[in-house]
Amino acid sequence: MNYPLYIFLIFGLSASSVFAVNTSTVDRLLQNYRQQGAHDFDGKAGEKLWHQSFKNPKTGKLHNCTSCHSKNLRKPGKHVRTGKHIDPLAPSVNAERLTDIRKVKKWLLRNCKWTLGRKCTAQEKGNILRYLQSQ
């Protein structure tokens, strides 16, 4: 048995778990999604979903994430129904974005239901967060 290696491993493991406690909101959410079976989150797929339109079965209207947010995430959006101004979603220009875990969960739930007509899967949410995070 190679004791130094063993000790090194234990140290390494505990250090990484301490690190995990301090990780960002997005990393914590991605970790949750992995526990639900999602993996290999892909910002490109997230970007595609961001621009995809879904037909609302009740009204026949097309719903899209960009109905309220802008196509360019660094620009402000406007709520399609009420006209209210929405600050940019890109963390690079709006440091508050993707920092409050309850807020992110709440809006992904509501906005997926409104846009896609259903909840997003863990994989879809992870992809979207990767995309938003990169902006």
Partner: peptide, 12 residues
């Protein structure tokens, strides 16, 4: 709140 004027405003 989940059917709030054709929008979704549901809360915990």
């Amino acid at each position: 709140l989940d059917q709030h004027f054709d929008d979704n405003a549901e809360l915990e």
